[in-house]
């Protein structure tokens, strides 16, 4: 088994969860309605719990303890997709991001329940049920709002157009793609993306939203290799401050 490949996989999953968890928590007290305020706060708690579970797996592989990993790295050491670091924007954008991200996340977890690396299998099996509620929430809201008023549909469509290039960045292949597949650790981003596309199309077809032509879109890649938008570092600084730990310059 290639440990570097495994770590790379764990980092990108955990970092996605940590960053989106923090973004979701920014809705606490600001949701458009109380139910959505509660939903985003709950999902934030879940996501932070999930990141801790994956950082713990990394710790078992010899990386630092979860708090150190989470709160002392700089942006160029994070492997999250750029999608999750974008500011929360208006509710429409956060909802679309949640829809696009969690529909991929549930399929990723499902794949990981079949991983040859047993510690991942255990964690994925446990957490899959929780992500299911996130997907249920996202799909229900998209179906409702995506076939409601002209204004709501228009706003969601704009957010979808804006978020989609970043969402495609979720599936940016790692440099270890072939090893991970060969070792049976992970079935790969290509396969994940195909299954994801099928699922989001199924939901969108029940709304008046339209999926832009993917062949005309350039994915916003780079996140998996430490390239980020200007929005990530300020968020990391804020997180580090909350945890009263000084970010290290090198790691």
């Amino acid at each position: 088994m290639n440990t570097e490949a495994l770590k790379d996989l764990l980092y990108k999953i955990a970092d996605d969860q940590l960053i989106l968890g923090h973004r979701n928590s920014e809705w606490t007290g600001f949701g458009p309605i109380l139910e959505e305020d509660i939903a985003f706060s709950s999902m934030a708690q879940d996501k932070l719990g999930h990141s801790l579970a994956f950082y713990s797996l990394l710790h078992e592989l010899g990386e630092s303890d979860p708090d150190t990993i989470a709160f002392t790295r700089n942006a160029n050491q994070f492997h999250n997709s750029q999608l999750v670091e974008l500011p929360i924007g208006e509710y429409d954008f956060s909802l679309i991001r949640h829809f696009l991200f969690d529909n991929a996340e549930i399929l990723r977890f499902d794949m990981l329940t079949r991983s040859s690396y047993t510690p991942i299998t255990t964690v994925a099996t446990k957490l899959k049920g929780e992500v299911k509620y996130h997907v249920l929430h996202a799909n229900t809201m998209i179906k409702q709002l995506g076939s409601s008023t002209e204004e709501a549909i228009g706003r969601l469509q704009n957010s979808l157009n804006e978020a989609l290039p970043y969402a495609l960045g979720i599936f940016e292949p790692s440099k270890y793609e072939a090893e991970l597949i060969a070792d049976g650790i992970y079935e790969g981003e290509e396969k994940l993306k195909a299954a994801w596309l099928e699922n989001i199309k199924k939901v969108l077809s029940q709304t008046q939203l339209e999926l832009p032509d993917l062949t005309t879109i350039t994915p916003k890649n780079g996140g998996r290799y430490g390239e980020h938008t200007e929005h990530l570092q300020p968020l990391l600084d804020e997180m580090a401050e909350v945890f009263k730990i000084d970010p290290t310059a090198e790691w």
Partner: peptide, 13 residues
């Protein structure tokens, strides 16, 4: 079902 998220993580409304 009103919402799968309630006042605590383990509750739906």
């Amino acid at each position: 079902l009103k919402t799968p998220f309630g006042p605590t993580l383990c509750r739906s409304m």
